Every structure is written in structure tokens, then in C-alpha cells.
Measured scan of single mutants.
Amino acid sequence: MASQGTKRSYEQMETDGERQNATEIRASVGKMIDGIGRFYIQMCTELKLSDYEGRLIQNSLTIERMVLSAFDERRNKYLEEHPSAGKDPKKTGGPIYKRVDRKWMRELVLYDKEEIRRIWRQANNGDDATAGLTHMMIWHSNLNDTTYQRTRALVRTGMDPRMCSLMQGSTLPRRSGAAGAAVKGVGTMVMELIRMIKRGINDRNFWRGENGRKTRSAYERMCNILKGKFQTAAQRAMMDQVRESRNPGNAEIEDLIFLARSALILRGSVAHKSCLPACVYGPAVASGYDFEKEGYSLVGIDPFKLLQNSQVYSLIRPNENPAHKSQLVWMACNSAAFEDLRVLSFIRGTKVSPRGKLSTRGVQIASNENMDAMESSTLELRSRYWAIRTRSGGNTNQQRASAGQISVQPAFSVQRNLPFDKPTIMAAFTGNTEGRTSDMRAEIIRMMEGAKPEEMSFQGRGVFELSDERAANPIVPSFDMSNEGSYFFGDNAEEYDN
């Protein structure tokens, strides 16, 4: 993207840094990872977990959730003011799984939030270390993106479920800051804005008074975040219109849905970061690795190297396929839920299948599930090659597409044709070009129609051997075009429920 120079890199967003050079960025990201790792080690000690239990991804998720809940100030305040039966607002906890007599047992633990905050700050040299908290939120978000298709949420806001490739980060909490905003897809931002506008339509006082002023500035800020994701002048001009509207209503909703559809071809720039579970960072720190000293990046080879040398386990339900569970977590670790499966298959070195073909449910185990038949197995999170994460949407291309997802959002900077089903997408653009945004709409449609099938995206960008740390010898991959490109292809993934 041309304006790259004016933006802070995501590592800076990730670490609240002012302008830093590459070495400083690597050190501050490393410091953040160190903090998460030290916190995780301490929690495993508190909970008396064995090494194996500490490497269980379900335990990692519970521990991450506990610290996120302990620092969720708004919710904590709300819980104190609106006490609900049987919930102690000062405590947080969740299921911890232990191996007892050759069987997995679930144990519900409860801790004072104050105590968890103390352990977290102690692991982070006394700081609140917001960057580390956001990092864990993005890992949870990436896992949700890989596990669930947001059909219901899309339909509720009037969008087409086939636009799911635009929904990265749709389950990120509001408090995820600049680093969170960077990884949100165009569809996620559109959905947040539509929800806001709908509230304004239904509630006369939404934009009024002292609160209304705050609401208005939040609305304009979200519009600017979305505008910054678009790469064409016409899309940005249309966002200006939406932002400046005196009284946002149905016309703005129409414009936003139009823009979301246009992003299936004229893709937005959305950041991709490899955020790993805390149970990967903990053992690495415990083994003596100093992330701050060595430096770390979320968008280069580092996460690949770390996963190459990590042992992570997962509980497996009786009829689940461990290899499929591994694929789910591998995609989440690489922030690749909406990437082209052919690119992923090449990088991973084994075939990556669409969601609907995987015999696996989510990673988390519900409290009512029976533990008797639970097994555990090693997650295979290694890769054959590594590639640089991208934040450009890439230019655009036609490809055989599917009944489910009709476009992709690249996660890796790797040369390819970008699949999208042009006739299906263009069919949504018939007729409606009147109104105050008509010239911009016409211009956007013209650009979409001009998108050429034979153009290559990320020209000359390749993948790298894991021994090639400096990215000196790019390998331009070859793809098996007979395979499906979309992950949520004609899909039956479970729906995400809060």
C-alpha cells in the first residue's frame, strides 16, 4: 500500500510504541512475548500442572481467558453494579484439565481477579502490559475465525453469508486497541457500523446529549479505520460520505453494504499476525530463551520457528480426527482463516481442507461434555516452508469459486491468482447506482469489472525454506488448481455463540 510509510507498523501498534527502528520493534515485541511466557509459567505453578498438562491447549485457553477477564475493567465495573446470582464479580476462573488415573478430569478453578492481575503485572515488570493482553485477544479471535462461520451475524446486519472472507476479527472485544483495529476485516468494521446506525434509528437519543457526542466521535473513528483499509480513492470518498452524514440511517447502511461487497474484489488491507497460545510461549521462556534479547516478529519467520520446536497437546472428542484438529489450530496460529487453501497447503506441506470436510468441533470443551471418553493427542503445528504475512489485500483475480465463501483475504505475501467468483459478486451490483453516491458507485463498479483474471497478485513473492531466515531465496510455489480455494466452501461450520 502506498501510504505504508505514514502508518505505524503493526509491531508498533502491538507494543504501543512511538516510531521505533526494526531492532527496537523486535525487542519490544519480544518483551511482550516474554511477559506472556513468564505469566503462563507462574500460572502453571499456581495450578500445580504437570509439564504435559501445561502444554494442553484447553488449559492455555482457560488461563488466557482468566487474565483477560481480570483486566476487563468495563465488564468488571458492570458486574459490580449489576450483581447477578451466583456470579462473584471479583473472581474469575474456568475449567482446568488434569490427568488422573490414566483419565482426563475437569476441575473448575476460581481465583481472585486481583490475584491474577498481581501475577500478570509481576510477570511483566510491574506494568499492565496491555500489548500482551491484546495479543491474547487476537489469538482467540484468530481461533474463532478458523472455527466458526459468522453466517447468522452477517444475515442479521443485512449482509450476504458468502462475504465471510471479510469477517476477520469479528469476535475481537471493543477494547483491543490499535492492534485489534489493524486485524479487523472490512466486513467486521461494516458490521460494527451498521449495528451502531441501527441503534440510532431505533433509539432517538442515541446521537443526542453528552453521551451522543461520545457516540458520534466513536462512529467517526470507526469510519476512519474502515476508510484506511480501502485502497481505492472511490471507496475512500464513499467512506467520507458515510462519516460526514448528519443523521446516519438506511442510506448509510446501503452504502456500507455496497462497500463491503466491493471489497470482495477491490480488497481492503487487513493486517495478519501470528499470535500463538500462551502454552507455546511459556515452555520456550522456561527453556531459557530470551525473546527480548533475541527479538521477535509476528509477521516473519519467528512464529514458524517457534511452532517448529513446540509440543502442544489437545483434548480430542471420541469421533474427532486429531489431524483435522491440528489443521484448525495451525490455521489459527498463522492467522489464515480466509487465505486461499492452495497457498496454505503449499506452505504447510500437507493438504489443507475446507472447514466442512474437517471432523472436528471447536477447541474448547463445553462444561456439560462427558470427560470419560476424552483422549488427548499432539497437535501437528509444523510447516514445510515459511512466508511473510501481508497486510495488503493483493490485486484481484477471477477463479472458480464456491457456493460458500466467494473470495479470499490473503494472509501471506505469496504470488498467486486470487480466487473470487466474479459473476456471483457482480450480480449483486445491478441497477442500484442512484442517489448521492452514484458517481462513486459507478466508478467502483467500473474498477471491479476491469479486474483481470490473468493478473498475478504479489508478483514474484515466494515462500522460503525454514533454514532461509533472511528470506534470501524465494520459492514461487505451484498450486494444484483442481483443489478448492475457499475454506468455508459450501460450508456447515458451527455458528459462533458468545
Rank of each mutant, 00 (worst) to 15 (best):
L47S: 07
Y148C: 09
K273Q: 05
L108D: 05
T350E: 00
A181P: 00
V463I: 15
A153Q: 10
R150E: 09
M222Y: 15
Q235R: 08
G404K: 08
R261C: 08
D421M: 12
L341D: 14
L154P: 01
G362E: 10
P95A: 15
S3F: 14
I347S: 06
G17Y: 00
E244R: 02
S367R: 03
F429S: 01
G268A: 08
L418Y: 00
D160F: 04
L466C: 02
E443G: 09
R384V: 07
W386P: 02
W207I: 01
M136P: 02
A178H: 12
A401D: 00
M167K: 05
T6S: 01
M13R: 02
F346T: 07
D255Y: 13
G169Y: 05
L307W: 01
A85W: 00
Y219Q: 06
D255C: 03
T171P: 01
V100C: 11
R152V: 03
L143V: 08
E114M: 12
A366D: 10
T151N: 07
P322I: 06
A251H: 03
L381V: 09
A332R: 03
A471T: 09
Q364H: 08
F488M: 04
A428M: 03
M456W: 14
A337N: 09
E14C: 10
V242C: 14
A233N: 15
L49W: 09
R121F: 09
I253K: 07
E252H: 07
P277H: 10
E339L: 03
T147D: 05
Q42M: 04
S438C: 01
R213H: 04
L61R: 01
L306F: 03
R342N: 05
S335T: 09
G35S: 15
F429A: 01
S335M: 01
W386A: 07
D340R: 02
G349M: 05
E465H: 00
D88H: 02
F488C: 13
E443A: 06
V363Y: 01
I388Q: 04
S170V: 05
L166P: 02
F429Y: 15
M456I: 05
A403Q: 14
C164D: 00
F458I: 10
I425T: 15
N21F: 00
G94L: 04
Q327V: 11
M331L: 15
P419E: 12
S392Y: 03
L341V: 14
T15K: 00
G450V: 12
S482D: 14
G126C: 13
A451V: 07
S165K: 00
R400M: 05
Q122F: 12
A401K: 15
I63D: 15
E434M: 08
Q122C: 14
N319W: 01
W330I: 09
R317K: 12
Y52I: 03
A237M: 15
G158M: 14
S335L: 06
N76H: 01
M159Q: 07
T350R: 05
S367P: 00
N124H: 14
M163S: 04
D421S: 15
V312H: 00
R267T: 02
R199G: 08
A179F: 10
R74P: 07
I475D: 01
V312S: 02
I425D: 03
P322L: 05
L172W: 04
N473H: 12
T232L: 11
F412R: 02
Q364F: 14
R236A: 03
R55Q: 12
R26V: 01
Q20N: 02
E46T: 13
S176T: 10
A471V: 03
R236I: 03
M189W: 06
S359H: 07
Q42N: 02
I406W: 06
V408A: 14
W207E: 05
I25Y: 02
K113C: 03
R261P: 05
D255R: 07
S478P: 09
V29A: 12
V329G: 08
A451M: 05
G356R: 13
G5M: 02
D439N: 12
V280Y: 05
S326N: 14
E210C: 13
P83I: 05
I119C: 15
S84P: 03
V183L: 06
D480L: 03
G462E: 14
R470G: 00
R75C: 04
P423K: 15
V299S: 04
M136C: 12
F464Y: 03
V363S: 03
L61H: 08
F458T: 02
V190I: 14
G435A: 08
G288E: 08
T424L: 15
F291H: 11
E244Q: 07
I301C: 04
S367G: 14
K90F: 00
Y219P: 01
I138S: 06
I225E: 07
F230Y: 10
A179G: 11
T92G: 12
M43N: 15
Y52W: 07
I388L: 07
E434W: 06
E252F: 09
S402E: 04
E115S: 12
R317A: 06
A153D: 06
R208C: 02
G5K: 00
G132K: 04
G86M: 08
R216L: 10
Q311P: 00
V299C: 06
N370L: 12
E465R: 13
E454Y: 12
E73H: 08
R174P: 01
M189D: 02
G404M: 12
Q327S: 09
P277C: 12
A323E: 01
L259W: 02
T23M: 08
A182V: 09
Q12F: 05
T92N: 14
E375N: 11
E465W: 10
D340F: 08
K293T: 11
Q405K: 15
K229E: 09
D145C: 06
R175C: 02
Y496C: 09
M448K: 12
G54Y: 03
V29G: 01
M239K: 06
E369A: 06
S367I: 00
D468Q: 04
E252V: 13
S69P: 08
Q405A: 09
L193S: 15
L79H: 05
L307N: 02
V29P: 02
D51C: 04
L226Q: 12
S28V: 00
L143H: 13
M43L: 12
I265V: 15
T151G: 04
Y148E: 01
N473I: 11
Q327K: 12
E24G: 01
S402M: 03
R102Q: 02
G212E: 07
R195C: 10
G362S: 01
Y111P: 01
C44R: 11
G86P: 11
G356A: 09
V414P: 00
I201L: 15
Y385F: 15
R261M: 10
L79S: 04
T147A: 06
I425L: 05
R461E: 09
R221E: 12
F464A: 03
H272F: 04
T350W: 11
S467C: 11
R8V: 00
M448C: 01
F346E: 09
Q168M: 11
F71P: 07
G394D: 06
H140R: 08
Q399S: 05
L381A: 10
T151W: 10
V343T: 06
S482P: 00
S60P: 08
R74H: 12
T134C: 14
T147E: 09
F230W: 14
Y97R: 11
S383A: 15
D491G: 09
D203V: 03
A337D: 03
A428N: 14
N202A: 11
S392H: 06
L307Y: 01
A278P: 05
S245Y: 05
V109A: 13
L466M: 14
A153L: 07
R355Q: 11
N321R: 15
C164H: 02
K422T: 10
T134I: 03
M167G: 09
N144Q: 07
D160M: 09
D468L: 00
M331Y: 08
R317N: 07
N76E: 13
M456R: 15
L110M: 05
V280A: 10
P477C: 02
T350V: 08
M191N: 11
E73R: 06
G93A: 06
D480T: 12
D127H: 12
W104C: 13
A411M: 02
E18V: 15
S438L: 00
I347F: 13
K273P: 07
E107Q: 08
L466W: 15
T430L: 05
I347T: 08
R55M: 07
W139M: 09
M105T: 13
V186H: 13
N202G: 06
L466N: 06
L418C: 15
D112W: 09
E18I: 13
A129E: 04
